[in-house]
Simulated assay, not measured.
Amino acid sequence: MTCVDGKWNKQVACEPIDCGIPDQYHVYPAAFNCSEGTTFGKQCSFTCKPPAVLKGSNNNLTCIEDGLWSFPEALCELMCRAPPLVPNADLQTTRCHEGKHKVGSFCKYKCKPGYHVPGSSRKPRKRAFKIQCGQDGNWLEGACIPVTCDPPPSKFHGLYQCTNRFQFNSECRIQCEEDGTQSGRGNNVIHCRKDGTWSGSFHLCKGMEGHCSPPSQLNSRLKLQCPDEYGIVALGKVKELHDS
């Protein structure tokens, strides 16, 4: 300031340094409470956002003379809670029944009989899998899907009635009229087993056995191919002949 004509040429005031609201780079993931203000000497407290937990005892930051917040003496550590229940699977890792799991830790599951891990096409199909505690404090997903048996040959389509398509424990039945009654005895009833195989084989009822007469040509430009000859439910192919 300069004294000019008996007066100072300007007025000067000193204001307290303001550190501003702490951001996520100070403590993450946390919420801050600065009820006293954010100027020099004031303190802000922080609480950890779930599922993070406080590690340490002093959860206060102080605004210091250089306009920065003091270095935190505690931190918020991301943790996963107890892993979720996975339908049709059993949790194998004993410690995973408790909460507070560090990011990157694993928990092992095993699918129940009749279920397998998606994407495992080889037989026997994979039943064990692991899920990991992710960077955001949530568990990555895992699943078990029902074992399925191979569909029956196409000639049996529509003849067998299945309780749950071709999935594990589904029972497929063909109704045969024997001695004037409907019966499901013997191999007329089969079910899909937990290893993905059928308990028996698909077959025709005795009353369905026999042969058909050779099919007649629709016209001279069509050729019929019957690799299974003319047995009941045998399939034939029709091929159109072209001029040479």
Rank of each mutant, 00 (worst) to 15 (best):
E171W: 02
P146A: 01
C133K: 04
F156L: 08
Q132R: 07
G158H: 11
E141Q: 07
V147N: 10
S170H: 09
T163Q: 06
L140W: 09
E141L: 06
C176R: 00
I131K: 01
F166P: 02
N169Q: 15
W139Q: 01
N138T: 15
D150T: 13
R165A: 13
W139V: 03
F166N: 13
Q161C: 11
I131A: 02
L159A: 09
F166E: 06
G137K: 06
G142Q: 03
D150A: 13
Q132H: 05
Y160A: 00
P152S: 10
T163P: 06
F168M: 02
I131V: 13
N169E: 15
K155N: 07
P151R: 10
S154G: 12
Q161D: 14
N169M: 13
Y160T: 00
R173M: 12
W139R: 02
E177I: 11
R165P: 03
C144L: 05
D150K: 12
P146M: 02
C133L: 03
N164K: 13
Q167Y: 14
N164W: 09
I131N: 04
N169G: 03
N138E: 15
G142F: 06
F156E: 01
P146F: 03
D150Y: 04
F166S: 10
C149S: 05
S170M: 14
K155L: 07
A143K: 08
P146W: 05
N164R: 11
P152D: 04
R165G: 13
P153Q: 15
